[in-house]
Structure formats: C-alpha cells, structure tokens
Write a protein that binds this DNA or RNA. Structure first.
Lengths: 121, 121
DNA sequence: TTGTTGTTCAACCCGATGGTTGAACACCTT
DNA sequence: AAGGTGTTCAACCATCGGGTTGAACAACAA
C-alpha cells in the first residue's frame, strides 16, 4: 500500500458501499455487525471495506469488550476539500484571466475561430 | 462502466498521475502530447488516463486540426465538494450534540466509560 | 499520392481489489 | 472449562486498472 494519503482517501471513497458506510458513520458510531446489516455481503467483506477506510484515515476503531466500534474521523475530509478547492479556484481564476484577455483583445485576429484553447504553451 | 457519477469522479482522482494532469489543466488546456511530456509512460497510457477523466466528466475534449485539446471542467468538483461537506458537517454537528449531552448529563451514570458509541441502533 | 504528426484502438500482461468460505482469535457468560 | 458472540485471518477466485506494444485512423504538408 505505498500509495500516498490523498490517493488512499479518494480511492476509499470511490466505492459506493464505503461511501454509504461513511454516511451512516456520520450519524453515529457503529460496530461491524451493525454496519453490515443493510448490505447483502459477508461480514468479512465489510471488515475489508473498513480496513480500507481505516488505512485512508477516514475512520478509527476502538475496543469495547468483543466489539470494535468504528468512528468517523472528519478531519481527513479537509485534505480532500483543500485539494479540490485549490484547483477549482485556479480554474475559475483562469476564466477570469481569459475574460480579461478577450476584453482587451485587439481587432487584428483572423476570422477563423481563435484558438481559445491554446491560451498557454 | 456502470458505476455512478460520484464513484467515477473519486476513482478518477485516486490516481496521482491523473491528479497531476488535473493540476496542470487548471493552469491551461493542453494536448495529449503536452500532457504526456513529464511522465515516463507511453502516449497510449496518457490517452487512457484522459479517457478516465473524461468519463468522470472532469475534462472535455475538442478538435483542432489533428490535435484534441483537453479542457478542465471545474463544475464537477462541486459534486464532490457537496458530498464531502455534507458529511463533514454532520459529523461536526454530532460532536456538538455530544457536547450538549455531556453538559446536561445527570450524575447517575455508572463509573465505567459510558457507551458513547451506541447513540443509535 | 505519399509522408508526417497526433491520437486512439486492440490485444495482452500483471498486480490490486472485492467477493467468497473456513478456520482462528478475543472476549464475555455460564 | 466450555460455549456464544463479534471480528479477523488465510486462501482462493474473478474482475478491474494501469501499463505495454503494434497497428490503425485522422488531418495536415509535400
């Protein structure tokens, strides 16, 4: 599992079952058995999903007699949010710059559709 | 590829190379050849990565002579951000509620750590 | 027409992933 | 000590994902 942290988080959330687990864990902690109940898969499969979420840092586990309750770790979400917001902002700024460019565009552009795609390079 | 939209987006961004492409596309549109340049993989591999990003709705492609410039579609990021924020907020509210619970807690609780885990179910 | 450039398609390899079942471990109850 | 409950480990199987190479397609340039 040499993948970087961000990859592990994205990868963990790429599975609908795991996202559903996260959804339910946002409401309340739960045990493996409780989590497994709605899904039509083995307990072992659910346990594996939890391992993925845990390796991604999205959940933590404690011990409580035989049970091992699962707890959502909300902080990791910030990692993703930051990454996403950064590039969404960049892309938006870029549109801003493109607007400026178009606004100050001289008239000597050829009639063929200007390569709006090749703003750089 | 019957996976739902959100799964496709998360899955697409789970790969570091593809995230790097997105990073660079946030700065400017680029062709396959331009995108491939920094990576030590074949052009075909890069083309495949782009297909994944496109299927996830993260990029679009146009035609410009032989070239097929790649363009970042920033809107899809909102889908993820919304999903993430929703559960992050829920989890935080939950802590709030737990704080309330602890604040208004009566004295007749047993000395053993109260099962804060079993709030639901 | 022939060639050159940019890109994708097709077939294949290999390691990772999601699922299974059966056995084992951990902890409580009796 | 023996049994029950909750969870994980181990081995296995099928599919998927990222990589490769070789051939093909698309559009321009001679």
């Amino acid at each position: 599992m040499p993948a970087d942290a961000l990859s592990r988080v994205f990868s963990a959330l790429a599975d609908p079952t795991r996202r559903d687990m996260v959804t339910r864990l946002a409401v309340a902690d739960a045990t493996v058995n409780e989590l497994a109940e709605p899904y039509d898969v083995s307990l072992q499969a659910v346990s594996k999903h939890l391992k993925v979420l845990q390796d991604a840092g999205l959940v933590s586990r404690s011990r409580e007699a035989q049970r091992r309750p699962v707890h959502l770790e909300a902080e990791v979400f910030d990692l993703m949010t930051k990454w996403i917001e950064r590039y969404r902002r960049q892309a938006e700024e870029r549109y801003g710059r493109l607007d400026d460019l178009l606004r100050t565009m001289p008239d000597d552009v050829e009639p063929t559709p200007p390569p709006a795609t090749g703003a750089a390079r």
